[in-house]
């Protein structure tokens, strides 16, 4: 599998470290159902068969954190973006 780093260009997956699900949002600790929300946030994961947004770091390269949209059935990568850009876009959408 190769990931097209926005800075370095396409590189082998051995240069990257995988963190996990990029769709998680930290719940509001002041909310009434905070215990249940944090339990879900920390422990409960979907296991989708299909496109999945996940966090990777180009650890052996430019060290950028990336959000990679990968099809878990075929490993086809449809989008790679800087995690910072994704976070800014997501904050702007709210």
């Amino acid at each position: 599998m190769r990931i097209a780093c926005p800075y370095c260009g396409p590189r082998g997956v051995d240069e990257f470290s995988y963190l996990g699900d990029a769709t998680l949002k930290r719940p509001d600790p002041a909310a009434e159902n905070a215990d249940a929300a944090f339990h879900a946030y920390v422990y409960l994961r979907d296991n989708p068969a299909g496109p999945h947004r996940e966090l990777w770091q180009h650890a052996s390269g430019c060290q950028s954190w990336l959000v990679v949209t990968r099809d878990t059935r075929t490993h086809e990568i449809s989008a790679v973006e800087y995690a910072r850009d994704a976070a800014i876009a997501s904050a702007g959408a709210e």
Partner: peptide
């Protein structure tokens, strides 16, 4: 230029 690894050395 490229930041990469050679024989697992950064």
């Amino acid at each position: 230029a490229a930041a990469t690894h050679a024989a697992s050395i950064a």
